[in-house]
């Protein structure tokens, strides 16, 4: 099924999504990779305030090519999500509702997705040029010193993703394969 949703997410939106749905996202999403995740989790461990309110947010795991002059961003496809697995459960507990990346998640992440009603989307790996055109704005909001790994806020329009892990414990990586195995 194809659905169109607006970020940030509510419980109601999250619960309407099921593994196997194609979803078009419009609105603001955060962009962060390993280094920015480590910094966010360090702040939470020290019980300090985060540079951004995580409530209802989606984080896109991305490390783009440098932008050409006049372009919003360079090629910007998803990066491997498993590198964020050790940080994700805590961020989900603190209000994060969605993650966009590629590849398997750990059991701990899947458990947090169910417990706190969140969702994991796959974006198409290797579709960096197409995705680049669906990002209409971006700005650095923290950790500028990390360069391409800084924490960013992006505004996306018509951003295509697929629900892999939903709040009901379904997993498209497992179920999709089972359906087509011969």
């Amino acid at each position: 099924m194809e659905k169109r949703i607006k970020a940030p997410l509510t419980d109601e939106i999250v619960l309407s999504l099921h593994a196997g749905d194609k979803v078009i996202i419009d609105g603001p999403v955060l962009a962060a990779r390993d280094a920015a995740h480590a910094k966010l989790v360090e702040l939470l461990d020290k019980k300090e305030n985060l540079p951004v309110d995580l409530q209802g947010q989606i984080i896109y795991y991305v490390g783009p090519t440098p932008a050409r002059p006049g372009y919003v961003i360079g090629s910007a496809g998803p990066t491997t999500s498993s590198r964020m697995d050790k940080f994700a459960p805590l961020l989900i507990e603190r209000g994060l509702k969605g993650m966009i990346g590629k590849g398997f998640r750990s059991q701990a992440v899947k458990d947090a997705i169910m417990k706190y009603k969140a969702v994991y989307f796959a974006a198409t790996g290797g579709a960096g040029a197409l995705i680049s055109k669906r990002i209409i704005k971006q700005e650095i909001i923290a950790y500028e010193e990390l360069g391409p790994e800084a924490l960013r806020l992006m505004v996306v329009e018509n951003f295509p993703v697929y629900v892999v892990n939903d709040a009901y414990g379904e997993d498209l990586y497992i179920q999709g394969q089972q359906k087509y195995a011969r």
């Binding site: 783009p64 090519t65 090629s75 496809g77 198409t124 197409l130």
Partner: peptide, 20 residues
Amino acid sequence: ELIENAEIASRERLALCQDT
């Protein structure tokens, strides 16, 4: 998406994938 990605990459001179 991948077929469209190739068209956009070529037209806009955007890398096919960000991992070049």
